[in-house]
Design a protein around this nucleic acid. Structure first.
Length: 474
RNA sequence: GGCGCCAUCGUCUAGCCUGGUCUAGGACACAAGCUUUUCAAGCUUGGUACGCGGGUUCGAAUCCCGCUGGCGCUGCCA
């Protein structure tokens, strides 16, 4: 009896700490994580910091923080800069076996070569003529893999998302592996790591597709097995080019700062290039995990549509009760308006729930936190005039100053009282009553229902604002 | 220039593998209406898409070929 052991699913996200967490990296991380969770496999985080010049621990922290915020917990953690011995070992072996060699060509020579090839309409690549000799008077520059550029071989792989993909070996050239024994370059370090970390599936952006044949060649030289590949469609900007800085917010931080919820971002990002069986729009993390499969990932890129993100986020915001929403919005309220009472923000929750797309939009409700500023004429409703408006406000003031129980503020009851007022004094024109009330309370033309505002602000503030408005009309 | 990938409403997509039920479905956005004191929310309704050309077939969004277009890569970055 042969024992059949199921291949363990192990995937990784391999960001380089040369910038803050990018929205595209977050998406790739999410897809890897979803795939791992779906198959109860391992999700590995590997910091690719071989480029010491550009790597920065601040960026590394930012990336870790962002992934944690999204809820993508990793099972193992590695840093390439701590694995230099591993790369050196493999490099030495390749050199000994003459599968790799020291290249003596200078950057200038390489550039000239490329220029010539471009002119001849050939694939630009470096072909080292004197692979294993030490030219006199020249210095070692870089370690390269010896690739037979006359080969008629076709390098191919089965991409889980794209199917059969192939490249001709002769267009590749002697690719670079490392600057020296302890300074590995991307393609080489990736192959060594993916092998040693027993990565079963490499799930990465489509922009890496051209790296794949190079990595296959390196793996062959190393004599190691290859993972399965899955190249994700790119996230695009408005103009359908790869999402980048010029398209606006690509830093993951900005989405955290604007007050998007992690669940909403997971939901939105998952839908960029993938969709569930029933084509549902709002799904929990668990529902996504359950349904996720790479075979269902699309091949073409998807534009990052903030409007759809906003809608999804607003759907999640609506799911919170007052208490939850108050907790959620409090940091944003205090950031914009200074220290606040929990009880006050709690009263605002219902206002927020039905109109916030992202939490930092609380800044649009300035008038709850400071006195409104407006011109007296704004108080005047359509066909009304200043005199009538003043009378209306005086009547409203009277109603609201009456025996209304501000503590148990019953919006329905107060509206019925104000409606009655409109009926009796303004021929049923409710706008004549509500409009000046709105403006006196908010100083805005567009705002939540004025009765709602009054409830949130409480008796004293509300009555004061109405009095101020009346003063303005004198 | 070279190499590669891709192609359904403005956007995200369902359908394509296993051709007919697709006069192409859903969602976002947009427009109109309802509600209404404004805005928002909610509800109802509406418009807009299979890139083009061949082929295979009784029949093609679905299969094949070509074209066009878009994008990605083309580093001693990752």
């Amino acid at each position: 009896m042969t024992k059949v052991r199921k291949l363990e699913i192990r995937v990784r996200i391999a960001p380089s700490p040369t910038g803050n967490l990018h929205i595209g990296t977050a998406r790739t991380a999410l897809f890897n994580w979803l795939f791992a969770k779906h198959h109860t496999g391992q999700f590995i985080l590997r910091i690719e910091d071989t480029d010491l010049e550009r790597s920065d621990s601040g960026f590394e922290k930012n990336i870790l923080k962002g992934l944690e915020w999204l809820g993508l917990k990793w099972d193992e953690f590695y840093k390439q800069s701590e694995r230099l011995d591993r790369y050196e070992k493999h490099l030495k072996k390749l050199l000994e076996e003459k599968k790799a060699f020291w290249c003596y060509h200078t950057k200038e020579e390489l550039e000239a070569e490329k220029k010539e090839q471009t002119q001849k309409k050939e694939a630009p690549r470096h072909i080292c003529a004197d692979k294993y000799q030490e030219p006199i008077g020249k210095e070692r520059q870089i370690i390269r893999l010896a690739v037979d550029e006359n080969s008629t071989c076709v390098i191919h792989f089965e991409d889980i998302i794209r199917g059969h993909v192939e490249f001709e070996q002769r267009v590749i050239g002697d690719l670079s592996l490392a600057k020296d024994l302890r300074t590995p370059l991307y393609n080489f370090a990736v192959v060594v790591d993916d092998y040693e970390m027993k990565i079963s599936h490499v799930i990465r952006g489509e922009d890496h597709i051209a790296n794949t044949p190079k990595q296959i060649l390196i793996a062959e030289a190393l004599g190691v097995s290859l993972p399965q590949f899955a190249h994700l469609p790119l996230i695009l900007g408005e103009d359908r080019s790869k999402l980048s800085k010029r398209h606006g917010a690509v830093n993951f931080d900005e989405y955290i700062g604007a007050g998007y919820l992690p669940e909403a971002l997971v939901n939105f990002l998952a839908l960029l290039g993938w969709s569930p069986d029933n084509n549902a729009e709002i799904l929990t993390k668990n529902e996504i995990i359950e349904q996720f499969s790479l075979e269902k990932v699309h091949k073409s890129g998807a534009i990052f549509d903030v409007k759809k993100l906003n809608w999804i986020n607003s759907q999640y915001i609506k799911q919170f009760n007052d208490e939850g929403l108050a907790d959620l919005t409090m940091p944003f309220v205090e950031k914009n308006f200074g220290k606040q009472d929990k009880a006050f923000v709690l009263k605002l929750a219902s206002v927020f729930r039905e109109r916030l797309e992202y939490l930092d939009q609380v800044k649009e409700f300035k008038y709850f936190f400071s006195e409104p500023e407006y011109e007296a004429d704004m108080l005047v409703w359509k066909k009304s005039d200043r005199e009538k408006t003043r009378k209306a406000l005086e009547s409203v003031l009277e109603v609201l100053s009456g025996n209304l129980e501000w503590e148990i503020f019953d919006e329905k009851y107060i509206r019925s009282e104000l409606d009655k007022l409109a009926e009796e004094k303004f021929g049923g024109d409710r706008g004549a009553v509500y409009w000046p009330l709105r403006v006196s309370l908010s100083g805005e033309k567009f705002s939540p229902d004025p009765v709602q505002i009054a409830r949130v602000m409480g008796k004293e503030k509300s009555l004061n604002r109405i009095k101020n408005a009346i003063k303005k009309l004198h």
